[in-house]
Computed example of a mutant assay.
Amino acid sequence: MDTADAPAADLTFRDAAADDVDTLVALVESAYRGESSRAGWTTEAELLDGQRTDPEGVLEIIETPGSRLLTAERDGRIVACCQLQRRDGHAYFGMFAVSPAAQGGGLGRTVLAEAERLARAEWDAAEMHMTVITAREDLIAWYERRGYRRTGRTSPFPYGDERFGIPRRPDLAFELLVKKLATP
């Protein structure tokens, strides 16, 4: 059995460190941009060219108080990550990436569940918030199956700021998704 197909039970979670930055940038890029991202279902290659993140952005998340970059490791290799940020009464979930070779087997569900658990247990967060590109109907539906609801509140895509990618279409925007977190 390929390790990418192994059950989620063999995962180890930890916070990212500065020496993980290059590995994390490569993971995020592989999950969302370019040809390698087409191996999984989370690709944004039809919507955006350019980068999804950069070393400076990843390091900033790692070093910012009230923020963490959670990694999931299998056999000593980072296979998934997500950002958690403590905000007023809620937690923000972002920079979620699962290696394209490991997508479709429940790893994403496991990482999301661990992020929600940490937000409740460590920050007493009542809700988890995230933003998703509105054109990503398949991804939004995946989150809805996990209890997130669409709010209808949108924010514009940062056109002209290539740190977030180079849009391939003029109608991109983000929608806020919210989930109430059960008390521990």
Rank of each mutant, 00 (worst) to 15 (best):
A6N: 04
P7T: 15
A8L: 04
A8H: 00
A9F: 03
D10C: 15
L11H: 05
F13K: 06
D15C: 13
D15L: 14
V21I: 13
V21Y: 07
T23F: 08
V28T: 04
V28K: 02
S30C: 15
A31L: 05
R33M: 15
R33Y: 12
A39F: 05
G40R: 13
A45R: 15
L47G: 02
L48T: 09
Q51H: 13
Q51F: 14
T53Q: 04
L59C: 04
E60T: 13
E60S: 11
I61V: 15
I61L: 13
I61M: 04
T64E: 08
T64P: 01
R68F: 05
L69H: 04
L69T: 02
A72T: 05
A72G: 10
E73H: 08
G76S: 09
I78T: 10
I78M: 10
A80Y: 06
C81I: 11
L84T: 01
R86K: 05
R87P: 03
D88M: 15
A91H: 01
Y92F: 06
V98D: 00
V98S: 00
P100H: 08
A101S: 06
Q103T: 03
G106E: 08
L107E: 00
T110Q: 02
V111N: 02
A113E: 05
A113P: 04
A115Q: 03
L118T: 01
W123T: 01
D124T: 06
A126V: 10
M128R: 11
M130A: 08
I133V: 14
E137L: 15
I140W: 06
E144M: 11
R145P: 03
R146L: 14
R146V: 05
R146N: 05
G152D: 09
R153F: 02
R153S: 06
S155Y: 00
F157Y: 08
F157E: 00
P158I: 14
R163V: 10
F164C: 02
G165N: 09
I166E: 06
P170F: 08
E175D: 06
L176K: 04
L177V: 07
P184G: 05
